[in-house]
């Protein structure tokens, strides 16, 4: 986990710098357009009639559009200079659109006055150089990355963990009822051979079997919001057989693999979305999806069976596992009698 986290950060920072530089505007492209706009703005502001001013501005609509396009990729208000530059572009665009609307529009006069004031401000702040553009683009990229990262920290709690409290309570409550009625155990007996292959070190009477079964069932019927609570319950049950407590056991890795490679058979939510987009082939995705899922799950299982051999399994051996299971079941018995 340490390596994955460090790699994600390192790659993120590296590509962040790259993307920032990539987004930098080319001064060679910006400069001529800027000159064209500067010339036309000066001419328009000093033009004798509104019609003449409109003519000057109409002539620069192309470089203006290109500049505004480029400026849109830069951060708003990063430096005073860039902000003034961008406001000037906005102002020039407003003036140009006013000039096409009607040549003697009073809006044009005020737009021109606004433009003149802003242009003077840009000139005062100094020229736009290639350095200005690079700094602005890099700064924008850094800002975006920092904001996205911290925003995610908030949403991880508010949108994932908090809703999960309610969903976990609901589905674990239902599962408890199903367990007490003997439904889970009956289903688990039927799937014993499969479980023996996937989770060889989990004793057959361990409560993890029921939890794993329920999570698989929720996955298969595409019940997304029940699958996570039930799988987490299964992880906790498997943890009772984990002697190390901080290292993943073979069985926990297998549960992770089965869930992450998805064993959904009926993707209700995607079919629902497709119907909403008036698809004529909404449920035709089921067969190709089952085939694709089969390949991803099979690949995951086989690879995990190989990878798990490369490090020791912290799970209890057969005798220890049997002892732990007997203890848990005795506890459950006592609790039931109370």
């Amino acid at each position: 986990m340490n390596h994955i986290l460090a790699a994600l950060f390192a790659i993120g920072i590296l590509f962040g710098v790259y993307t920032g530089l990539e987004n930098t505007l080319d001064i060679g492209e910006v400069q001529p357009r800027l000159e064209a706009v500067r010339g036309a703005v000066t001419a328009a502001v000093t033009a004798p009639t509104p019609a003449a001013a409109a003519g000057h501005l109409a002539a620069i609509s192309e470089p203006l559009a290109a500049l505004s396009d480029q400026a849109a990729r830069l951060p708003r208000g990063h430096t005073e200079r860039m902000q003034a530059f961008q406001e000037t572009l906005d102002s020039a665009l407003a003036a140009a659109s006013a000039s096409t609307a009607a040549s003697i529009d009073p809006a044009l006069a005020s737009a021109l006055a606004d433009l003149e004031a802003r242009w003077t401000r840009v000139e005062e702040l100094g020229p736009i150089t290639s350095q200005t553009l690079t700094v602005a683009a890099l700064s924008a990229q850094g800002k975006r990355m920092f904001e996205d990262t911290t925003e995610r920290a908030k949403s991880a709690v508010l949108e994932i963990a908090f809703p999960l409290i309610g969903l976990m309570a609901f589905w674990l409550g239902i599962m408890r009822v199903a367990e007490e009625a003997g439904i889970v155990q009956a289903l688990a007996r039927g799937l014993r051979p499969l479980f023996k292959f996937l989770f060889p070190k989990v004793p057959r009477d361990h409560p993890a079997n029921g939890a794993i079964l329920m999570s698989m069932a929720a996955n298969i019927i595409g019940l997304d919001n029940a699958a996570t609570p039930l799988s987490l319950k299964a992880m906790k049950e498997l943890q009772t057989l984990n002697l190390d407590k901080e290292t993943l056991t073979d069985a926990q890795g297998m549960l992770l693999t089965l869930n992450a490679t998805s064993i959904t058979l009926v993707p209700f939510s995607i079919i629902g979305y497709r119907l909403a987009y008036s698809s004529q082939l909404a449920s035709d995705i089921v067969v190709p999806m089952i085939i694709a899922t089969f390949f991803s799950t099979l690949t995951g299982i086989v690879l995990w069976k190989i990878v798990q051999r490369m490090s020791p399994d912290p799970a209890a051996g057969p005798e220890e596992a049997a002892r732990i299971t007997a203890e848990i079941n005795a506890d459950l018995q006592r609790e039931a009698h109370r």
């Binding site: 906790k236 490679t261 690949t299 299982i301 690879l303």
Partner: peptide, 21 residues
């Protein structure tokens, strides 16, 4: 959910499983 910190390289099989899928 179980406070496990060492994952024994399980991410590899998971991502390759996705790729195969």
């Amino acid at each position: 959910a179980v406070a496990v910190r060492r994952t024994r390289g399980v991410l590899g099989p998971l991502l390759l499983g996705d790729l195969a899928g």
